[in-house]
Design a binder for these strands. Structure first.
Length: 981
RNA sequence: GGGCCUGUAGCUCAGGUGGUUAGAGCACACGCCUGAUAAGCGUGAGGUCGGCAGUUCGAGUCUGCCUGGGCCCA
């Protein structure tokens, strides 16, 4: 009976199999919210900060670029916030105290539109709504989305000071923004200029590009003559011909643009077409200047039957007369010719009539030609020609009061008398060459559907090129200050520096005013006589005080007297424009970084890092740079990190209409936020990244590899305590090698986090888990872990090293995979507090062991030959498991043979037995060309299979069928059971 | 149209200053194991390094052009 019982004894219960509650499958979508709840209870972000501050840790400031509080987050938001969280958590892990306050951009047009849309749906007009009520609705709308987005960001595991989140519409923020604006006013950096904007006369309002839609529209066209006054001698007595679809802009004309790359000629009219029903305006002998390529076309329009080319002509520095100069002295100014690349010879005459107050190109070429205009003695003022109703101002000669578009009654939106009147006067002056009609695409208001015009409007600008004689700038201009600040900033990647530099070098003055309702006001008064902003510190202080208490609404709802402490209100105009939203966000550093948001929390400016998408070179990076350069003479950041855009799987832009979008919400629901984070941790974020089904699958696979590695360690470490740990001196070579790898990885991981090279960490971790842990360390030590006595030195060494690896992997990975590492850490140490609280532990320098690294490279080379030989045996069905083999390995090269000194070859090869011999062996042995000098003869292991550890050994025999080691281990186990019972 | 960036195996990525048959992990195929099991181990098959031309004894790496893609402008 007893013998039978022994023979059939199932040794499984005596084997120390991995034992852990950490499941193989995470169920992240369900698990993550539980972990988030735990973090919330622990007030994780503040707890970590407190711990760091108590330890006297250095401060690291990441300043959050505010997303716009409008709509659910998309993948780009997710990537941006995840990368920021990598920074926050990795700096925490490196021992820093990290200041990160998430924020939102709240003012601006998109929200205004939403609210207007709601009004339209209810049949109300925006103009009928009191501004305070309108702004309140905008505020409520933004507030709703701040809450929504905050929940979504938090669901991604983003840590930060959510309790003190900032918003540009907070009263304190609005006051700070206005205070920043006042600094520009005080230092004389603000000026009133003008710029043509899209204007809807019917609605009496400026329109943004996105508010304009294009429809076909029939316009009159004219060919008009500008007599040459001076310039190329060959042009004497000739006239430059322009073509335009907006005759009403002729009174606003101040120049004619040409393109130096186009060839022009002087053409003389020889004969006019006969038998016309009307008298043409062209006459034989007329000399006209047009582009060679377009001469036929122009002559045809002018009903010229024959003409000849008289000469070439050079337009450089040519000056013309205004076509209406003969009728009124008011048009007696010089009309210079300006070179411009916007001019083409595809249509028209090859010249562009230039009215700087009524066209974007016109405006830009006018500004660019400042030098030339000065040299020619031309007045550079851009004239205001039409009023908000599109009627000519009284000061416009010949046409005062005439409207371009009708704005009242049934005819609203139709052409008024202006075009016709201008044509009549051109005829009278003898300078109309021809006219016609043209159906073309023309901008219309998307609301009223009425045509719009380009109209010069007064606007406020910040000067880029005025020398600033104050302590901050020391005589430098804003542009130069900003350029110097760029040089003092670190850009990752480095190309960003050049990119923003080019933009700042070439940008025009900063246009900061908008004729809108939802924003921070240009809260200032302007002297009605001089047009100069009032610079009065007491007034400004009062304005800021009121806004801080009541919000920016107060600026619009309270009378001027409330702010004008003592000043005569009748002398000043209250400016009710709002600030460009980029001024808002450009000011965030002032109220987020410099304000002490709560006693005890340190403040710090400039920030260590700004981290945004590469589009922000023109956006937030630049607005922040200009704002801070204007007010503080330096950038608000020490370093700028940019990431690319997220594209679909094929590398194409995502769009709802293409249906190729990946929503963060659906990834979270299907796979978990951790998968999205790991994706961000694997890609090269500096470049554009791709995401899609297969990519997410790859990510999930990588996740499983890491998770299973952690799980195996948890299982193998069951019951492990420090009492079991062994010192380095007692470690076998394999453990020393793993410790060496931990030492290397510690160095690499720290360097990678310092450099924000997150994918270097991820890659190193995955490869370590696969190559050194799973396929080497775990595989070799499985036998020891399962079968050695618990007090065996070999097993204790393995568990000691496994514990060290677990301790490090869980913190190295915690910035990238906070959920899983938290889960793993708390599984092993349920009472040790949050994993995120930890700092990457110091790694003893003594762990470095280059000799072991070299040894194991050699050992693995030999092992690969053994594996090759065993693979053939399997294929031939001579063996199955490696434990059925007992390879005989001949190693010719001394260095390779030496590598096995102190090692058990069978253990390394994971076979039951192995024989290692120096020198050559029989020719039929297995070899690999890439490992010369190693020959393997894969014999079957002779002996009996140990019923417990399954190794085939000669020492195993009936009745127990145990090897010596297992016999001993079972005995110890039995005694342990007895003691327990 | 302009400025900047970018294109290495099915996927994600490595490949200092140009130098032997271009690497890794995953996926894939095949085999093994069945005491990490929707796991583990092993073996293998995948690439004209976007294309063309040039510099060079030699280019994935340097230059030019072309092409695909992206961001920002016009």
């Amino acid at each position: 009976m007893a013998d039978d019982a022994e023979q059939t004894r199932d040794y499984r219960e005596t084997v120390f199999l991995p034992d852990t509650p950490f499941p193989m499958r995470a169920g992240l979508p369900k698990l993550e919210p539980q972990i988030l709840e735990k973090w919330a209870e622990a007030d994780l972000y503040r707890a970590v900060r407190k711990a760091r501050q108590d330890a006297g840790a250095p401060l690291f400031v990441l300043h959050d670029g505010p997303p716009y509080a409008n709509g659910a987050i998309h993948i780009g938001h997710a990537l941006n916030k995840i990368l920021k969280d990598f920074v926050v958590r990795s700096r925490f892990a490196l021992g820093f105290d990290v200041d990160y306050v998430p924020g939102w951009d709240c003012h601006g047009l998109p929200i205004e539109w939403k609210i207007e849309e709601q009004y339209r749906a209810k049949g109300r007009r925006k103009d009928d709504v009191p501004v305070a009520e309108f702004r309140a609705e905008c505020r409520a709308y933004a507030d709703k989305w701040i809450g929504e987005q905050m929940r979504e960001f938090q669901r991604l595991g983003i840590t930060g000071d959510w309790a003190h989140r900032y918003a540009t519409m907070d009263y304190g923020s609005e006051a700070a923004i206005v205070a920043e604006f006042h600094k520009f006013v005080a230092s004389g950096q603000i000026f009133r200029g003008s710029k043509p904007v899209m204007w809807s006369p019917v609605e009496r309002t400026a329109l943004a590009d996105a508010e304009v839609e294009y429809h076909d529209h029939v316009s009159p066209t004219i060919w008009a003559k500008f007599p040459v006054q001076s310039g190329d001698e060959r042009a004497k007595g000739a006239a430059v011909v322009i073509w335009t679809t907006t005759p009403w802009t002729i009174p606003a004309n101040r120049a004619v643009s040409y393109n130096p790359a186009i060839s022009y000629g002087v053409f003389e009219v020889e004969a006019i077409e006969q038998d016309l029903p009307f008298e043409p305006w062209a006459a034989p002998g007329d000399r006209l200047i047009v582009a060679d390529k377009l001469a036929d076309e122009v002559m045809k329009a002018a009903k010229v039957a024959s003409f000849k080319r008289v000469s070439d002509v050079d337009c450089d520095r040519m000056v013309l007369a205004h076509p209406l100069a003969a009728l009124d002295d008011g048009f007696g100014f010089k009309v210079p010719m300006l070179p411009g690349e916007h001019v083409t010879d595809d249509a028209g005459t090859g010249f562009v009539h230039t009215a700087p107050g009524h066209g974007a190109d016109d405006y830009l070429v006018w500004l660019k030609s400042r030098q030339l205009l000065t040299e020619l003695g031309v007045d550079q003022t851009i004239p205001d020609t039409v009023d908000p109703d599109s009627a000519y101002y009284p000061h416009v000669p010949l046409f005062p009061g005439l409207k371009v578009l009708e704005t009242e009654g049934k005819k609203a939106g139709k052409f008024g008398p202006a075009n016709g009147a201008v044509m009549e006067k051109l005829i009278e002056a003898g300078n109309l060459l021809a006219r016609g009609r043209l159906e073309h695409s023309y901008p219309h208001s998307w609301r009223s559907k009425a045509p719009v015009i380009f109209r010069n409007t007064p606007q406020w600008f910040i000067r880029m090129d005025a020398a600033l004689e104050d302590a901050v700038h020391g005589g430098k201009t804003l542009r130069q200050t900003a350029l110097d600040a760029i040089d003092a900033t670190a850009f990752h990647p480095a190309a960003g520096k050049n990119r923003i530099r080019t933009m700042v070098e070439g940008r025009p003055d900063w246009l900061i005013s908008r004729q809108r309702a939802w924003g921070s006001p240009l809260a200032m008064f302007v002297d009605k006589e001089t047009g100069e902003p009032l610079r009065d510190e007491a007034v400004n202080a009062r304005i800021v005080e009121v806004i801080a208490a009541e919000g920016a609404d107060a600026w619009f709802t309270r009378p001027a007297e409330d702010f004008l402490a003592g000043q005569d209100a009748s002398k000043y105009e209250k400016v009710e424009d709002i600030l460009d939203v980029w001024f808002d966000s450009g000011s965030t550093h002032s109220f987020v970084l410099e304000n002490q948001r709560e006693p005890g929390l340190p403040t710090h400016s400039p920030a260590d890092l700004y981290l945004e998408g590469s589009d922000q070179h023109r956006g937030w990076f630049q607005s922040s740079l200009l704002e801070s350069s204007g007010t503080r003479g330096r950038a608000p950041y020490k370093a700028v990190l940019t990431h690319g855009f997220t594209l679909d799987e094929k590398g194409e832009k995502m769009s709802k209409s293409l249906g190729n979008t990946i929503e963060p919400q659906s990834v979270i629901k299907d796979s978990g936020a951790e998968i999205l984070r790991l994706w961000a941790g694997m890609v090269d974020y500096a470049d554009d990244q791709r995401i899609g089904k297969t990519i997410l699958q790859t990510t999930t696979d990588a996740y499983r590899k890491i998770r299973n590695t952690l799980r195996y360690m948890l299982g193998a470490l069951a019951g492990f305590t420090d009492a079991e740990a062994l010192p380095l001196e007692d470690m076998p070579p394999l453990e020393r090698f793993i410790l060496h790898r931990l030492w290397e990885l510690d160095r690499d991981v720290r360097a990678a986090y310092e450099a924000y090279a997150f994918s270097d960490v991820t890659r190193a971790m995955i490869e370590f888990c696969q190559n050194e842990l799973s396929s080497l360390f775990f595989d070799v030590r499985r036998d020891s872990l399962y079968c050695d006595r618990p007090d065996a030195l070999r097993r204790r060494a393995a568990r000691t090293v496994m514990d060290a690896a677990f301790e490090r992997l869980t913190i190295w990975l915690s910035p990238l995979m906070p959920f899983t590492t938290e889960e793993a850490w708390s599984t092993r140490h349920p009472n040790a507090g949050p994993n995120t609280l930890r700092i990457i532990p110091e790694t003893p320098a003594a762990w470095r062991n280059d000799a072991e690294a070299e040894r194991w490279a050699k050992v693995q080379a030999v092992t690969s030959v053994v594996n090759g030989a065993l693979e053939i045996e399997r294929r031939e069905k001579r063996i199955g498991a490696a434990l059925e083999a007992a390879p005989q390995v001949a190693v010719a090269e001394a260095a390779l043979a030496q590598a096995f000194e102190g090692l058990d070859a069978a253990e390394v090869f994971r076979t039951s037995q192995a024989e290692l011999q120096s020198g050559e062996t029989a020719d039929e042995a297995f070899r690999l060309p890439e490992v010369p000098g190693v020959a393997v003869r894969p014999f079957r292991a002779e002996g009996t299979k140990c019923a417990r550890c399954w190794r085939v050994l000669a020492e195993v025999s009936a009745p127990k069928f145990l090897c010596v080691r297992c016999d001993d281990a079972v005995e110890a186990w039995d005694i342990g059971q007895g003691a327990a019972a």
